[in-house]
Design a protein around this nucleic acid. Structure first.
Lengths: 338, 338
DNA sequence: AAGAGCGTTGTTAACGTGTGCAGCTCTATG
DNA sequence: CATAGAGCTGCACACGTTAACAACGCTCTT
């Protein structure tokens, strides 16, 4: 096989390798006819440029880094999927998309301008703060998605979790619920806080009391939703509705309800957050909040591309609208329970 | 800021850049003391090697390509997740993991030995046959996962879909079912065929007749499972059990059953294939077949690493055991329906 | 005392590409 | 006819790294 270089082409065309380089890069310096001739030869030889060599001289790696907090426990499949899909849609042929977990790295040495033209950080936890600060400090084109930052000044695209949580809890209240519990997300995740804040905001806005025993910890996975609901069901006084901080936990919670011989929403209402692919197909279909991860990823990748082109970055925080999706998991009740 | 090279280090250490290169690569030629001195300087300067330059001279890209048939419709989130997780676990710091959809490429020119040290193809459809043949032809280290190949000779790691389908249908029969329908997967996917074959094998082995109107087309997504089940429910003679070719479709199918005011498994039994993360949390928990995608990916990545190291590839097909997972979506019936 | 051999370091070229500058040819202009 | 300039092409070097080979000083052998 062996690989063909511009020098091989040059020899066949009877020109210097410089001319070949310019021809293939569509330089206006080259005579249109020779240009065509050279391109024809390159095609016939199946020439493909050596990106290592090009990178070396141009000081561009053609690598896009897409970094998640972790690729192990904690990142849901749907989240990964939407993020990759959104970014991949934008970058097409020009760049390599490199997917990694921040926690895969012992040292960040190898994350630098030589190896990456730009970085997209899908931040899910405060634990990647050091990475983000490192990236900001080495002055590499950077966008941080999903998690709002306070300290570092970067391009920051995030879903408006708090107002989403507010709306779904407001929805419960509007359906007559006043005994509302929350199963919280993973400790340390900013989204956990934002959703809790939205919950509290709605409760206080509508003057519904929050009861401590109806606030239970979760960690965003199915099992924790299941366990959390069991805790709630075992309470002497049960809530009439439960706000689960994501759909995975809502699924686990509904499972727990069913195991007890109770039904959703007849005996207890459940709402989630995320609008996972399967949420509309659950029994009952889940009322939840749609978080536009794919769109955020797409926009983030486009921003990053423009930073690289223009060699200049903007820094600002953009919130993306979250949307209440009403389905069948909430019962309308008329009187309060007490 | 600016990036530091081995020449900078050389200047500070008062040696030649060659010596620095050797020291950092732990060459036995270098005096241990100078070696330590050079390493210390490198550390203090936060030196990181320029991979483009290294790649150019060593003819290694340090890139692993993980290719899916498509990153658009057709690849489920769970599948993508498990595959990435499995591969990422193995490669750690040494390589970049580049994730792409085969259908993102107009031409395969840029997929070559210069840009990739090795390729992992997560094949889901016959449509990526040209890509696989191309890869085999340019003689790049290659493993093809998930879909069994007949023509091309490569390292091919696949789940034993047929025997999995056989077992889950056998399970239905052992529970007394004889009126069994199938909702098939996406046309053109090898897995669709294998699961259909397993279904037919079980039916014929136990001498249960297959009825044409109980074979309905699907395409592996939720909606098609939903639609498929509606077709079956509208039939004058309904089956007592339905084998859905994956869990997504099973979820859609169960949804359709519920919408009709019927129940699973009391009125109709449903089984799936894949054992998705959410399958155990559905209502009812789904009886299905576990397909070890993560394990296949991990083993595939390890094989590929060893090919690259040893500069020599093996070619064989390895089947990975699929496992029947019995849950609550199948009813035991005593007499047949006719 | 001369040479062989070892341990350590430096010189130089190479990988494939892009680019500043010089140089060529040809035409237009005075 | 001389010259300027436009249009095109080539020379030579650069990017940062590795590696073959040469070369150095030193010790040991004969």
């Amino acid at each position: 096989m062996s690989s063909v270089t511009i020098k091989d082409i040059a020899k066949l065309a009877g020109v210097s390798h410089t001319t070949v380089s310019r021809a293939l890069n569509d330089s206006p310096l080259i005579n249109p006819e020779t240009k065509e001739r050279i391109k024809a030869i390159a095609d016939s030889l199946n020439y493909a440029p050596n990106y290592s060599a090009r990178s070396l001289v141009l000081d561009r790696s053609y690598n896009f880094g897409l970094f998640f907090s972790t690729l192990h426990k904690g990142t849901s499949a749907g989240f990964l999927y939407e993020a990759i899909k959104g970014v991949n849609d934008v970058i097409k042929d020009q760049f390599n998309l490199i997917v990694r977990g921040i926690d895969d790295y012992k040292s960040f040495h190898n994350v630098n301008r030589k190896s990456f033209d730009g970085l997209i950080v899908m931040s899910q936890s405060a634990s990647d703060q050091p990475f983000i600060e490192y990236a900001a400090q080495i002055d590499i084109p950077l966008v941080v998605l999903n998690r709002p930052l306070d300290s570092v000044k970067v391009m920051n695209l995030v879903p408006d979790d708090q107002s989403g949580a507010f709306r779904v809890v407001e929805h419960l209240i509007s359906r007559g619920h006043r005994d509302i519990a929350i199963i919280e997300g993973k400790a340390g995740f900013k989204s956990t806080e934002a959703r809790r804040d939205g919950f509290r905001e709605a409760m206080s806005r509508y003057e519904v009391p929050v009861r401590d025993e109806w606030i239970v910890r979760g960690n965003y996975d199915l099992e924790s939703g299941h366990a959390g609901m069991i805790v709630l069901l075992d309470l002497p006084e049960r809530p009439t509705a439960v706000f689960c901080s994501n759909d995975d936990m809502a699924l686990g919670a509904i499972k727990a309800v069913t195991e007890r011989g109770l039904r959703v929403p007849e005996d207890i209402s459940v709402v989630g957050f995320d609008d996972h692919l399967f949420s509309s197909f659950m029994t009952p279909a889940l009322t939840t909040v749609r978080r536009p991860i794919e769109e955020i990823s797409r926009v983030g990748a486009m921003k990053l591309l423009s930073f690289i082109e223009k060699k200049q970055v903007e820094k600002s925080t953009v919130y993306f609208h979250t949307e209440l999706v009403i389905r069948d998991s909430v019962k309308t009740i008329t009187g309060g329970t007490n």
